[in-house]
Design a protein around this nucleic acid. Structure first.
Lengths: 204, 204
DNA sequence: AGGGGACTATGACAGCGGTCATAGTAGCGA
DNA sequence: TCGCTACTATGACCGCTGTCATAGTCCCCT
């Protein structure tokens, strides 16, 4: 929910991501994107000569960058507020979703997940964009984990586990219209995550 | 991949699930379903007077039952082959996907996830069908866990965690066209899962 | 033989999708 | 004033979608 008062082009990319979050790629029309962004319809073919595919791909790239920035922000906040831990980072990632769902309903999910599911509808480049988005999300998480004391060898794996569990819990939460899956995943994964830093200094 | 040589109605439900697995709900046309099932187009409105919504809902119910049966089969097989453990069950669930992906490519995902993502496009009943599908999947997993020695209080939570991680890993694997996320999730989650049975008999 | 139910076969309809084509406007440098 | 570039505005096209309407066929039961 940032307030992107940039140019119309950026607004359209943002709106596309926002609309893909609900309904998926197939249900998101280009006219609808322009309308949602308050941008003129004619600008679509001007800014995105590559058509819908380009727009969707850029929306995914935007989503990936956004997720990466969120991780950095979580780290900064928890560094100020006390001792950050892997489980705390994961809890913060999960909390973003529980907050949104309790506040605004379960209408929207992760745009990258939505695009991945509909990858057959939009050519193969969309799939690559989704993979890149996951990468620009996993990277900061893994870096954060190493910064918190997790051995570098496991940081990547744990980051993948965290994002997998989060994505799956988002799905279940939306289906059930209940935050339960998200909170469950956060509490169940916590000991495993914090144990990973302890392995570097096992005894007390 | 069962071979459902039942009536045309069941074939259409199966084909619908199969097609939703790729492309999602929006990209799956009813004519396409009939074609894929080798069923006459006229049968659609005969067997599914509720339209696409009914067809999708039944496909999700079918997928949920299928997933539940798979869990039971994993249990039977591993009971014969030796000592089943929670991590072994999860590994078997993951292996089904890695096997499919290495053998047949990454074209298809989980139909329930796809329908959840597109839930805004198809009325609210589809969302409930997805929730029910998750429930008929989580149930057997939780039962299996208690049968393996996991305290009943944690079995449900761990089942949710397992399915969440699996669904998320499926997404990432499809995006990356790489089984990596699936195997990572299986190995990283293994100690946590097996530790849950040990808590019942901690020493030794 | 005939009636009736289950199933199949088409065709039409209205709507929406992305994309292209064409024309129009605004601002700015020369 | 001209010309150029960036951007906007429409409208049309074609394909596809889900859904409905109307017949048509088959087969079993009485």
């Amino acid at each position: 929910m940032p307030v992107p008062e940039r140019g119309p082009r950026e607004r359209m990319v943002f709106s596309a991501a926002q609309l893909i979050r609900r309904g998926g790629v197939g249900a998101t029309g280009m006219r609808e994107v322009a309308l949602h962004a308050g941008a003129p319809r004619g600008s679509l073919q001007h800014y995105f000569p590559g058509g819908k595919q380009q727009l969707v791909d850029e929306a995914l790239a935007w989503a990936g960058r956004y997720a990466g920035r969120r991780v950095a922000r979580f780290l900064d906040e928890s560094a100020k507020a006390g001792e950050p831990t892997p489980a705390g980072l994961f809890a913060a990632m999960v909390r973003q979703w529980t907050d949104e769902y309790t506040a605004s309903g379960f209408a929207a999910g992760c745009p990258v997940a939505a695009a991945t599911v509909d990858c057959a509808a939009s050519g193969d480049s969309t799939r690559e964009a989704a993979a890149a988005a996951f990468a620009t999300w996993t990277g900061p998480v893994a870096e954060a984990l190493t910064g918190l004391g997790v051995p570098a060898a496991r940081a990547g794996s744990l980051a993948t586990l965290m994002i997998s569990a989060l994505e799956g819990a988002i799905l279940i939460a939306r289906a059930e219209r209940d935050v339960r899956a998200l909170t469950t995943v956060a509490t169940e994964l916590a000991p495993l995550l914090d144990a990973a830093v302890a392995t570097a200094a096992p005894r007390e």
